[in-house]
Design a binder for these strands. Structure first.
Lengths: 143, 143
DNA sequence: ATTAATGCAAAATCTTTGCACTTTC
DNA sequence: GAAAGTGCAAAGATTTTGCATTAAT
């Protein structure tokens, strides 16, 4: 269990405080989901995965609440959305700049540290626009 | 109209020949869609866009056929799928290695020439896997 | 003639919405 | 007790599927 950031361990009280700091009421569902999401180290998940986990932990939430919560957390900057599959969204607890391996055979993401990819040169954004994100996805499959 | 590749202009006969070379029967629908897709210069499109275009050109196709055709063309290597939006798939007629701007405000893709991005260093693929693709997407939005 | 492709409508997914009910502050 | 959040079921959107019909070779 890492000691390098304030979301590790995630005792109920601390999660609640973090939620309130983001103007999110500390409801039972949100605190429960937050513990699942941020309870251990960084992770990637889909809405469906989170929903199943919650249910199997005995946390009583609806799908709508899972989606609402994920979106609230996105807005609050607690999560980042990763687009690798047109069928579903992935959410990443690591909001710092970094890149991804996507295991096509397993529908699974894995972080790549930003230092493992050197992007030496980027085009400047078209006039009137600003860069909001640079995503590098390395798709891998079984050899 | 570019003269630099065999798909430019795309007279019906030539499209039909290209289809047959890929073991695809030259049906009226496929030839019609191929003309829309490859008729001018390189482009990006969603299934829905292609379907609307076909209908407004008077080409009688169903949605299922549009999807079937896009997938056949993907398999044949005529198209490449670009994942930037979890809601829908984009298809790119440019199958050569290159990268993309994604205009978040307009849901629109634009090619970035491969020379405009210098990827100096890539991590090696995890054991037992091979890299099937490296996608770089620069998301831009109105300033 | 054989076999592939098409079209339609129905189903499957994933996600969002509307609204009454509940909970938090 | 006011306002925000939740749950449910229904609706949306995109994509896939099943199967009878049509068209290409």
């Amino acid at each position: 269990m890492s000691a390098d950031d304030s979301t590790a361990e995630a005792p109920r009280k601390m999660m609640a405080a973090r939620l309130r700091a983001a103007n999110l009421r500390a409801t039972r569902q949100r605190v429960g989901l937050a513990e699942l999401i941020f309870g251990s180290s960084h992770r990637h998940m889909t809405a469906e995965q989170l929903y199943s986990e919650a249910r199997s932990e005995g946390l009583n939430v609806s799908q709508a609440t899972v989606y609402n919560t994920l979106h609230s957390f996105l807005e609050a900057g607690f999560l980042r959305e990763i687009v690798v599959d047109p069928r579903r969204s992935y959410f990443d607890t690591n909001t710092a700049p970094h890149h991804h391996f996507y295991y096509e055979d397993e529908n699974r993401l894995e972080d790549i540290s930003p230092s493992a990819v050197r992007l030496e040169q980027l085009p400047s954004p078209p006039a009137g626009t600003r860069i909001s994100d640079v995503d590098v996805v390395i798709r891998v499959s079984k050899r």
